[in-house]
Amino acid sequence: MSEYEVTPPPDRLADRVQIRTGFTTEQGDVVRFVVQLEYWIDGDWAPVVRYDHDREGESGHDIAEEGLHMDVYRDGEKVDVRDISGPIPAAQGFDYAEEDLRENVQRYVKRFERWHDIRNGSDL
């Protein structure tokens, strides 16, 4: 994960599940962020789904121009990109991402466990 101005400790939701966030602000406005659901597998935290915004990054994108999307991961690789909205302010996208991951954590984790043949892995 890239370096961000603010990177609070990950929020552990279950034994093997956490949400990691990072963001950077300029004059109080969010200019970069990542919100990522992660699963502990094979001795490391692997991405399950990720939302991000970086208007100036090489691999980032500007959700204020392109809209918000969610990256879906399997076996450590991005396998799908799902469009979520049209163009929205970065702060609104950041809030949406956190809310979506918290509300849909079971669905995202169960799919990840199914894809990776993990039985009784998380305690959600």
Rank of each mutant, 00 (worst) to 15 (best):
D62F: 07
D54N: 10
A91N: 05
Y4N: 02
I84G: 01
E58P: 01
E56Q: 09
D75P: 07
D62W: 00
R55C: 07
Y39K: 12
E58G: 14
Q92F: 04
D54E: 06
E65W: 03
R16F: 08
A46N: 15
D75F: 15
P47M: 12
L124C: 05
D95T: 05
R20Q: 10
W40I: 02
G28C: 12
A91R: 04
D52P: 03
Y51A: 12
H61G: 09
D95F: 04
R114K: 15
E58L: 06
Y4D: 04
P87N: 02
P89C: 02
G60Y: 00
D75Q: 07
D80V: 00
E56P: 03
E103A: 15
T25F: 09
T25Q: 13
V6Q: 14
D71H: 12
E98D: 10
D123E: 11
V81E: 14
T7E: 13
K78Q: 05
I19W: 00
P8F: 00
T24N: 02
G121A: 15
A46H: 09
I19G: 13
G60S: 08
Y4T: 06
G60W: 02
V34R: 11
P87L: 13
F23T: 12
L101P: 04
Q27D: 14
V72W: 06
R16N: 15
Q106Y: 06
N120R: 14
Y51R: 05
D117M: 05
V79G: 12
D95M: 14
P10L: 06
V31N: 01
G93I: 02
R16Y: 07
Y96K: 08
V17I: 11
V6I: 07
D44F: 14
P8M: 04
D71E: 09
R74C: 13
T25P: 05
Q36W: 04
K78C: 11
G86L: 10
Y108L: 07
F112V: 09
P8W: 01
R32L: 00
E56Y: 02
R12K: 13
D83Q: 08
Y39I: 03
E98H: 06
E56D: 13
H53K: 05
F33H: 06
K110I: 11
D54V: 03
D123Q: 09
I84S: 03
W45S: 10
D123L: 10
Q92C: 00
K110E: 14
P10N: 06
G60L: 10
T7H: 09
E77I: 08
E98I: 07
E98T: 02
Y108T: 03
G43R: 06
